[in-house]
Design a protein around this nucleic acid. Structure first.
Length: 254
DNA sequence: AAGTAAGACAACCGCCGAGAT
DNA sequence: TATCTCGGCGGTTGTCTTACT
C-alpha cells in the first residue's frame, strides 16, 4: 500500500491532541511549530498547532461572552483600523484575533448595518458588506483596498529620507480614507507594544499576565524602542489623526 | 417530529514579511 | 545577494447547533 509519508489530521482537535500540545508547549515553549508538531507526535501541521495554541490553549485566553465594553471597543477599533484583527485583539486582553473576527462577522457587522446611517455610517477602512457566498455575514467589500501588512521599516526609511517632512507638511488635509490607504497604522501602533502604546484606549479592567510574559525585552524590544523613537513625529501625527478621526466620528470623549 | 435555513465558530488556506543560510 | 523556511495575518470554508416552518 502506498501511503503519503505525511499523514496529517484535519478538522476539529481532540482533547488528547490538546493535551499533548499543551504539555509540549508548557515544557518547551512556543515557537518552531513545525518541530512541535513532529516532536510532540501530533499529526498536525505546524501552523495548525500554532493556531490551536494561540486561539484556545494558551493560558489567559478568554472565551465566550463578549461584554458590551469589549463590543464597543471592537467597533471603535474597527472604525479606526479596519480588519486588522490582530491589532484589535491586542487591545482586548485575552481575546484572540480569530474570535474577534468571528464575532465581527457574525454579530457586529450585521448589527451596524441595521443601525441608522447617521453617526456610525462612515465607511470603515475596509467597508462592511454582506458576505457574498451565502449572504451570511459581513466582510470586506470587493472594491475596498485589501488591508495589507506594510513594512514599518520601509515607512521609517521613507521618513528618514525626507527628514520626517513628508507627513508634517500639509497632511492635515489628507482625507482619512487616503490616510488609511496610503499609510499603514498597524506597525506604528504595534511599536512599543501594549504598555507603551496609548494611542488607542485599552480595556483597563484586566491585566493578563501572559501578555507580559510573552513580551521579550531583549534585542527585539530594543529594536522597537529604536523604531518608536524614529517614529515619534509620526506618532504625534497619528495621535492628531486619530483625534481628528474620533472627532469626525463623534468619539471625542475617547 | 422532521426538514430546512440561518447562525456561530473552529479550522484551513494562501499570501506576505522577516530572518536564517 | 538569492533562496529557503517559518511565523503571522486576514479571508474563507466547513461543520455543528439552533431557530423556524
Amino acid at each position: 500500500m502506498v501511503r503519503s509519508p505525511k499523514e496529517v489530521n484535519k478538522g476539529a482537535w481532540s482533547r488528547e491532541e490538546d493535551d499533548i500540545l499543551s504539555k509540549y508547549v508548557v515544557i518547551h515553549g512556543e515557537g518552531k511549530w513545525q518541530k512541535v508538531a513532529q516532536n510532540a507526535g501530533l499529526k498536525r501541521c505546524g501552523k495548525s498547532c500554532r493556531q490551536r495554541w494561540l486561539n484556545y490553549l494558551k493560558p489567559g485566553i478568554k472565551r465566550g461572552h463578549i461584554s458590551t465594553d469589549e463590543e464597543d471597543m471592537i467597533i471603535r477599533l474597527h472604525r479606526l483600523l479596519g480588519n486588522r484583527w490582530s491589532l484589535i485583539a491586542k487591545r482586548l486582553p485575552g481575546r484572540t484575533d480569530n474570535e474577534i473576527k468571528n464575532y465581527w462577522n457574525t454579530n457586529l457587522s450585521k448589527k451596524l448595518q441595521k443601525q441608522p446611517t447617521s453617526s456610525s455610517s462612515l465607511p470603515s477602512p475596509s467597508s462592511v458588506s454582506l458576505r457574498h457566498n451565502h449572504g451570511k455575514c459581513g466582510h470586506v467589500a470587493p472594491e475596498a483596498p485589501k488591508p495589507r501588512r506594510l513594512k514599518a521599516v520601509h515607512q521609517y526609511k521613507i521618513l528618514e529620507k525626507n527628514s520626517g517632512s513628508e507627513y508634517d507638511q500639509g497632511s492635515d488635509e489628507t482625507s482619512i480614507a487616503d490616510f488609511f490607504i496610503d499609510f499603514d497604522h498597524q506597525d506604528q501602533l504595534m511599536v512599543g507594544d501594549d504598555e507603551s502604546n496609548s494611542k488607542i484606549p485599552q480595556m483597563e479592567d484586566h491585566k493578563v499576565s501572559s501578555t507580559n510574559s510573552t513580551h521579550s525585552s531583549s534585542s527585539p524590544s530594543d529594536h522597537c524602542h529604536l523604531l518608536a523613537e524614529k517614529f515619534d513625529p509620526q506618532e504625534i501625527l497619528l495621535d492628531v489623526e486619530l483625534k481628528k478621526m474620533a472627532s469626525f466620528l463623534g468619539l471625542e470623549n475617547d
